[in-house]
Design a protein around this nucleic acid. Structure first.
Lengths: 205, 205
DNA sequence: GCAAAAACAGGTAGATCAGTCTGTAACTTT
DNA sequence: AAAGTTACAGACTGATCTACCTGTTTTTGC
């Protein structure tokens, strides 16, 4: 009779409140990003996400009072993962990158990701001047600015060199365009062929 | 008293049924495309579109039984306009185009259009395997295949030349990426700078 | 002109969803 | 260990949207 209180072998690991919060927040964000990839922005509802995350709707609304709060948190999580993945996953001793290496790094860390398309879908849905749009833009710009500066430096340009910056923007645009192509075209080989062709052309310039 | 039936000076031009249908269909499609640009896919409802098109909801549902029918028709209209605009607006006597001319033609006729982004938003919303997705894809592929073949020919390649086709795909990807960039970046000059840079690089290759 | 058909007008029903609210369980502080 | 705080659970509500349905007007075939 007294055995139940102390140490039931199955449940109750006794997490702190912070841990509990963080866990449901993570589950919700992860489910949101998955759902963005799998069913698309239009289909996302708080009910669906709660189910996918295996979290009660009450827990979800407690952590994210509004639907936008949920979307913003998910977006923020994804951006921070990209931020951590690039360029810090690169060999940190490399101060300089060949064009090929830069393209590969950007493609593998960011643009080839299914979730890049999901993020684009979110950004497009928020492209008008609504609340969501402004917040997402703010989250993006801080990352993008940093990402682009690092890319400029890695490719050997001066940070204030407008020409080098433009070149980096072109790199990013090319990869963005190829990523979009990939999301519509089922053939995954085409993307790699296009990247190879771009590498060849970029090397000359 | 008998004057009213014959020729009231203001109204009733007596259109045919086909004309009446076509007019409301056009008004609805146009309003849908406008709304896609102005408020985005998420906000689109049949009620909103009926208001914007200045058409009763009954007329709308008569012409387009389902919301998807409406979206598909709008998409189809836009694609057919692109189809008519490119490359037939070009000087039809030109059998060959310089790289610069090809880039300009594609950019001005398709990618610089606000509605290109709207179409992308639609395609992304339909990218999963739902009904809308399949229909939109079918509409696209017939146009794209034609568009790309013409581009290959204009740039002097053989239609069956895989290398030439890949080059065209890269052109399209670059412009697609720049168009996406433009939809997020408020500065319209950047897009033109990127296109100029791309022209310079493409000319060499 | 008149009957049939097509286009139009607008109301209703059922479903869904975001936000709110009330009650319960887990954790923390003292 | 009692009181207080935070996290969770799920019901409820008002708004909204799509599809359907019933009348009305306009056009068409004869």
């Amino acid at each position: 009779m007294s055995a139940e209180a102390k140490s039931p072998p199955d449940a109750k690991p006794r997490r702190t409140q912070a841990e509990r919060s963080q866990e449901t927040r993570n589950k919700v964000c992860e489910a949101t990003l998955q759902a963005l990839v799998e069913v698309g922005y239009e289909q996302i509802s708080t009910t669906l996400i709660a189910q996918k995350a295996k979290v009660s709707r009450g827990a979800l609304t407690h952590q994210f009072p509004t639907r936008n709060d949920m979307l913003v948190a998910a977006f923020e999580k994804q951006v921070s993962e990209w931020r951590d993945g690039y360029p810090f996953k690169l060999d940190p001793e490399k101060e300089q990158l060949s064009v090929d290496e830069l393209i590969d790094a950007l493609w593998e860390n960011i643009f080839s990701d299914d979730r890049y398309i999901a993020a684009i879908e979110l950004m497009l849905a928020a492209r008008q001047d609504n609340d969501l749009g402004h917040v997402l833009r703010d989250i993006l710009v801080s990352w993008i600015r940093k990402r682009d500066r690092i890319a400029v430096r890695l490719v050997g340009g001066d940070v204030d060199d407008a020409e080098a910056d433009l070149k980096v923007q072109l790199h990013l645009s090319v990869l963005r365009g190829i990523a979009m192509h990939q999301s519509f075209d089922s053939d995954p080989l085409t993307a790699h062929k296009l990247i190879d062709l771009w590498k060849r052309i970029a090397r000359q310039a």
